[in-house]
Design a protein around this nucleic acid. Structure first.
Length: 489
RNA sequence: CGGGGCGUAGCGCAGUCCGGUUAGCGCACCUGCUUUGGGAGCAGGGGGUCGUGAGUUCGAAUCCCACCGCCCCGACCA
């Protein structure tokens, strides 16, 4: 047993922190609210990034890069967006330091170096991007404009948590321009589908697609779509959002195009984003009290070969042969050449780091022409013949990927509960947790009241929800379909 | 940003209430030997501005003040 990880049942929040730190994914830095992403954590992010990037390219998008700083006058141009982010912006006011005359060796901000106009450190890039798009778009032939950027953004959060909410985080933000509202909505929906597909097929994290209520909508959006996942403690995590921005930004930044009839029209917009928060979701979907559990498709190392008791000429030679066969199939495999630690220590270590498959290879295995195959997800161990080991491992990795998804979906489904009365609703939230499907009258004030009473919010109005009429659990007013409630991160 | 808790070696902690020689312990680290199929044992060794700053005092990890950070609860938050 891993002695150092707090168990989930004892203290879920501490368990999460323990996993992040013990699996060496990230740690707090000298900067308030900002984390250092360590090599293992960053390798996971690189895998997430690379695959999502492929999916963006396959759907016709290109990457570009826009500045970190947004002049305040541009930032405030789209009023709702500016208002929504105003409370959490870092602002650059000066561009120079100078020696402090009163304290040798110390520096002070040079008051003579005050900027004419303050620069907002981007909390999101709509403003700077739409200001740029104005010059890029003249005609319907320039549309659609389909760009994405991989970047860091800063949101001065009051309370931060590693990966889930940090003051600076890495993300991707897509920003597209279209000739018609229909086309923009279709784009926003398409990208939500891309997110859902990525979450389910790569992260093995089942998600529910839906629309946000007006209260939960992105500042400046006409409509916000999202994917919502359920964590092991019964709380929901918003894993990605895609927004139909209407003409709000094109009007704010005066982005017009000439249509086929030679008439000026404002452009229709979308934006969509996912962040390093996904890693938090990945952790809380699959990991256990022994450490991180990674889906094979995103694991930096998919197979670790542990020589028992330690590397020797014969064992290393056998390991090399296995590695060649696995690599020929595109499997990421590593041989543990550490001479210092004993096998038991290494087993625990690799489990902590979430490596999906471990091959234990000792002299007695060589004699029997076999290897011990251990699965991280189920902890099962099997002896497998070295003949055809690559095929076996290839199949096993797919099996693990599928098993993790099925396991998470079973959990999610068994923690998605309908409620027809407010008492029932509250009881489920307090005792079982998870998603609660309940009727809501569509009124923002009702939503607020429910949140106040239960701390649960409407995660989304599911797209695939049955159009089953009913009565709002709070007001009794008519409702057309159940919406998805949960307490959330 | 409000309430509570905490900050002593890389990590986890004792010591602080009640000031007093050279600040301890476990893990980790270094060296050696014995070990090695689920987190090894023994022996020796290195590592500290006690979160930061300013005070009180002959003397401060310990008392006072301010600040910073972390964790929890709340408010806030795509």
């Amino acid at each position: 047993m891993a002695k150092e990880i707090t168990s989930r049942s004892e203290d879920y929040a501490q368990w999460y922190i323990d996993i992040v730190k013990k699996a060496q994914l990230a740690e707090n830095s000298a900067v308030r609210g900002c984390m250092v992403i360590k090599p293992h954590g960053f390798a996971i992010w690189e895998n997430i990034r690379d695959q999502m990037d492929r999916m963006f390219k396959e759907t016709g998008h290109q990457n570009a890069y826009f500045p970190l700083f947004v002049p305040k006058s541009l930032f405030e141009a789209e009023e709702k967006n500016a208002e929504g982010f105003a409370k959490e912006c870092a602002i650059v006011t000066h561009y120079r330091l100078k020696n402090d005359p009163d304290h040798p060796g110390k520096l002070i901000v040079d008051p003579a170096a005050k900027l004419e106009e303050e620069l907002v450190v981007r909390p999101t890039s709509e403003a700077i991007i739409w200001n740029t798009y104005r010059d890029w778009i003249q005609s319907y032939r320039d549309l659609p404009l389909l760009l994405n950027q991989w970047a860091n953004v800063v949101r001065w959060e009051m309370r931060t948590r590693l990966f889930l909410r940090t003051a600076e985080f890495l993300w991707q933000e897509g920003h597209t321009a279209h000739a018609t509202a229909e086309e923009a909505v279709a784009e926003a929906r398409q990208m939500l589908d891309v997110y859902a597909q990525f979450a389910e097929e790569w992260m093995a994290m089942p998600v529910i697609k839906g629309a946000k209520t007006a209260n939960e909508r992105f500042a400046g959006a006409e409509d916000t779509y999202c994917i919502e996942a359920l964590m092991q403690d019964g709380k929901a995590l918003q894993a990605g959002t895609s927004h139909f921005l209407g003409q709000n930004f094109s009007k704010a930044f005066d982005v017009k195009f000439l249509n086929e009839n030679n008439q000026q029209e404002y452009v229709w917009a979308t934006s969509w984003g996912t962040s390093t928060r996904l890693i938090g979701g990945l952790i809380m979907t699959h990991s256990d009290d022994d450490g991180l559990v990674l889906p094979p498709r995103l694991a930096p190392v998919q197979v670790i070969i542990v020589p028992i008791p330690k590397p020797s000429e014969a064992l290393s030679e056998a390991a090399e042969k296995i590695m060649r066969a696995l690599r020929a199939k595109g499997i990421r495999v590593k041989y543990d050449t550490d001479m210092k630690n004993r096998p038991g220590f290494k087993f625990a270590e690799h489990e902590m780091r979430g490596t999906p498959v471990r091959l234990g290879l000792g002299e007695r295995d060589l004699l029997a022409n076999q290897v011990e195959v251990a699965r991280r997800d189920t902890k099962e161990k099997t002896n497998v013949s070295l003949d055809g080991i690559a095929d076996y491992v290839e199949t096993l990795l797919e099996t693990i990927q599928q098993n993790l998804f099925n396991r998470a979906r079973t959990y999610r489904d068994s923690h998605t509960t309908p409620a027809d009365t407010f008492e029932e609703f509250q009881h489920i939230l307090d005792n079982k947790g998870g998603f609660v499907l309940a009727h809501w009258d569509g009124d923002g004030a009702t939503e607020e009241k429910i949140k106040e009473l239960t701390k649960a919010t409407i995660r989304c109005i599911p797209f695939d929800g049955e159009k089953e009429p009913g009565k709002c659990i709070l007001t009794g007013n008519p409702s057309a379909q159940r919406v998805l409630f949960a307490r959330a991160y």
